[in-house]
Amino acid sequence: MMCVSGLILYIGSVPLMRLFSPSAAVVTLGAEMLRLVALSEPFFGLMVVLEGIFYGMGRTRYPFLVETIGMWGIRIFLTFLCVNVWGLGLRAVWCCMIADNVGKALMLAAPFLRRYLHQSGK
């Protein structure tokens, strides 16, 4: 479902941005950022599902740690470095947010992948 919504967001980025601004420059920049975000939608969906699995199992500490590392270590700290140290712009900020989503999805998937690989003898 998140792949489909990402595809729709990617394809419909310009019309969607036109709903919010008549400025061609704003529409162009916003559509570019929406296309970047669209590519991370499957990872965001995976992250939400895996967090729900952990919560359903009663294991709340690990997703809390993953969320904390992702938010403060990747999203906030990396964004701070990109903007204030390296002087990068809006694209870099959105890349940090995408990296946060992808990183959290991978960190939440790691225990399941380890268990699967261990059980299958690989």
Rank of each mutant, 00 (worst) to 15 (best):
G121E: 02
M107P: 00
G70M: 05
P15R: 12
L88I: 06
L36N: 09
L19E: 02
R115C: 06
A105E: 00
L36H: 09
C96T: 08
L16A: 11
G121P: 01
L117I: 09
G30S: 09
I74Q: 03
N101W: 15
L117P: 02
Q119G: 12
T28D: 15
M107R: 08
L117F: 12
M2F: 15
V93E: 03
R115T: 08
L16R: 05
V49F: 10
F80D: 11
G89N: 09
S5P: 01
R35I: 06
T60I: 12
L7H: 05
P111C: 08
L65C: 13
G6V: 01
T79G: 10
S5C: 11
M1N: 09
R91M: 04
L19Q: 08
P15G: 03
L81E: 06
L113V: 15
E41G: 00
T79I: 06
K104I: 02
F80C: 12
L117E: 06
R114S: 05
A110Y: 11
L19N: 06
V102E: 01
M47K: 14
R115W: 05
V49S: 09
G56D: 09
A92T: 02
L36Q: 14
T79N: 03
Y55P: 01
G87E: 09
I53N: 04
F112Q: 08
P42K: 02
S5M: 12
Y116I: 09
S40K: 04
S120K: 14
L29D: 13
N101M: 11
R35M: 10
M1F: 12
E41F: 13
G58L: 04
R91W: 03
F112D: 06
D100Q: 14
L78E: 01
W86Y: 15
F54K: 08
G121A: 07
E41C: 05
R114I: 15
T79W: 03
G56V: 02
T68C: 10
E51N: 12
A38C: 06
F54W: 07
G30N: 09
V4I: 15
F64T: 15
W86I: 05
V27C: 11
R114V: 14
N84Y: 12
I76K: 08
L36F: 12
I74R: 05
M33T: 02
Y116R: 13
M17L: 15
I98G: 03
I11T: 10
L46R: 00
I11Y: 09
M97Q: 14
L16P: 01
F20C: 05
I74E: 01
